[in-house]
């Protein structure tokens, strides 16, 4: 019951600081931007003065799966940035301003405090991401060709897991350092480092969370879930659970120390 109260408090706070308005809108913009600019590329080129008459450029014909990957590509770069920036102050900011002390003076367990924060952020991220992909799906069906709703659900499920991992990383750094800007920087740096390590050791790390989007592309073209995707999903889930317990542990230690 205590957890539920904390969770509701977080939801209300995120409504008050308008995160529930701007994060979904930004995610929709991110998801829709690339499909639209690619669809209108011929007109955009014409409007910008057009090609010289003798140039011949074949603009590729995009399949629905390619367009999904365009949206996901935006989420992997700008989406991660948005998540890191909107979640940078959730715990570290409260610790800096002393709000967390006001809460933790009462008999609130650290586990409830952290998981309520995590759950509210996770919910916001997933809803925003789903709305973005729904918008992208709408345009795909309108402009590029049919994509089944089942395929969209699979994309939401697996890529949502990757976004949850980013939320968990951010929460972990929130408990580790007190400066919000540093939290955002460390989160983005960690995600980039993970990507780097995954590319360098790509023959060993077949189940790395960073490869989820590659496997999603395979899934969309072949139509079946590759076994590596299931593996990567399991590894991601384990990392999320590990990070949550890790943040509870560091938070408890930091709070007792200060």
């Amino acid at each position: 019951m205590q957890w539920w109260t904390l969770f509701q408090k977080e939801l209300i706070e995120n409504v008050r600081n308008v995160k529930w308005v701007w994060v979904p809108l930004v995610m929709i913009l991110l998801a829709v931007m690339d499909p639209l600019t690619n669809y209108y590329l011929p007109q955009i080129i014409d409007a910008a003065g057009g090609m010289p008459d003798d140039t011949e450029i074949q603009l590729p014909e995009y399949q629905p799966a390619d367009v999904v990957m365009m949206s996901l590509g935006q989420f992997s770069s700008m989406g991660v940035l948005v998540i890191a920036l909107m979640s940078m102050g959730v715990i570290s900011g409260e610790r800096k301003s002393g709000v967390s002390e006001l809460i933790l003076v009462k008999p609130v367990s650290y586990l409830n405090y952290i998981t309520a924060k995590w759950a509210s952020l996770a919910l916001l991220t997933l809803v925003a991401f789903s709305l973005g992909m729904l918008a992208s799906w709408y345009y795909i069906n309108l402009l590029f060709g049919a994509l089944s709703f089942g395929a969209l659900l699979q994309v939401l499920l697996f890529y949502g897991l990757w976004l949850l991992l980013i939320v968990s990383i951010s929460i972990f750094y929130n408990t580790l350092v007190k400066t919000p800007g540093l939290v955002a920087f460390l989160t983005i740096a960690t995600v980039m480092l993970m990507g780097l390590v995954t590319t360098i050791f790509s023959h060993i790390l077949e189940w790395s969370p960073n490869r989820i989007s590659t496997y999603i592309q395979q899934m969309l073209t072949t139509g079946s879930v590759p076994s590596d995707l299931t593996g990567a999903a399991i590894v991601t889930l384990m990392m999320i659970v590990f990070l949550i317990f890790g943040s509870v542990y560091t938070f408890r230690k930091k709070e007792l120390a200060s």
Partner: peptide
Amino acid sequence: SILSEINWAVIAPLLVIQGILLIVAAID
């Protein structure tokens, strides 16, 4: 001709999103 080529049913949602962002930010 460029303006009429663009399908406004496609572009309108983007303009709406931009408008909402601007109004919410201003009120806030």
